[in-house]
């Protein structure tokens, strides 16, 4: 997908993001751009700030400094309620930890973002069913999260992130709790679906095998981006 100038359209970007929970910042001046339709992997050691960065990109956390742009809107400058409206309609988020509502069925969980956005129940449930089927968990429509395996609830969570057909999906360790074969099946399905839909994806993972599903990887260290190795000065033995 290109603009008239032939440049790749930027779906999501961050400029000089800073976020602190307490005294020490967890994200220290991160800038990045994700092209439309691109799958960007973010890797880094535990505690390097991956989840914090993703929550800033999602508009869940408001950065202390810097900005997040979604398309041409600076979402980091929007109010809390506007950010959460944008998140419901234009961004799908898969969180690292427990995210499905345990009292609701899989179908109700997936339909929820549409209902919150004002869709009619029947339309929301039809769409939810389609997305559950796309991730091969259609049979679980009436099951509740406590009775699902890790892989099943992760698929349901991904279906919920995609049900609004957002431009951007942000996923934090979507396969973190799964064995490698289940993780691979979830990744295969996720990548197939987002490639078909042209969705832009930011994928946080500490696992290189998951990262390799992306088009490009950026690496966080102590809240900062490592420069890409290709940009490092040729410092080898000459």
């Amino acid at each position: 997908m290109s603009t008239a100038s032939g440049e790749k359209a930027v779906a999501l970007s961050a400029r000089s993001l800073v976020y602190s929970y307490g005294a020490a910042p967890a994200v220290k001046g991160v800038s990045l751009e994700v092209a439309r339709g691109e799958i960007l992997s973010i890797t880094g050691a535990s505690g390097s700030g991956k989840s914090t960065l993703l929550l800033c990109l999602a508009g869940v956390l408001a950065p202390d400094a810097g900005e997040v742009r979604l398309g041409d809107r600076i979402i980091s400058a929007e109010s809390e309620s506007e950010r959460s409206r944008l998140r419901r309609s234009q961004v799908g988020v898969v969180f690292q930890f427990g995210q499905l509502v345990p009292e609701l069925t899989a179908l109700e969980n997936v339909a929820l973002p549409l209902l919150l956005g004002g869709a009619r129940r029947s339309a929301a449930e039809t769409a939810a069913r389609t997305w559950l089927e796309r991730f091969e968990v259609g049979g679980l429509a009436d099951a509740r999260p406590p009775g699902m395996s890790g892989g099943q609830s992760q698929r349901v969570a991904i279906a919920r992130a995609m049900v609004t057909e957002p431009e951007v999906v942000l996923a934090d360790e979507p396969t973190g709790a799964l064995d490698s074969l289940s993780g691979e099946l979830v990744m295969n399905q996720l990548v197939r679906v987002v490639r078909e839909a042209g969705t832009t994806v930011v994928l946080v993972t500490h696992d290189a095998r998951v990262s390799a599903y992306g088009d490009r990887e950026i690496h966080l260290r102590d809240g900062e981006l490592d420069p890409h190795p290709a940009d490092l000065l040729d410092a080898g033995v000459s």
Binding site: A208, A212, E217, D226, P229, A230, L232, L233, G236
Partner: peptide
């Protein structure tokens, strides 16, 4: 720097 480049090369192959 060498290790970082090697990492990038490995990841390319993995892709």
């Amino acid at each position: 720097t060498y290790l970082r480049r090697q990492r990038a090369a490995h990841l390319d192959r993995m892709r």
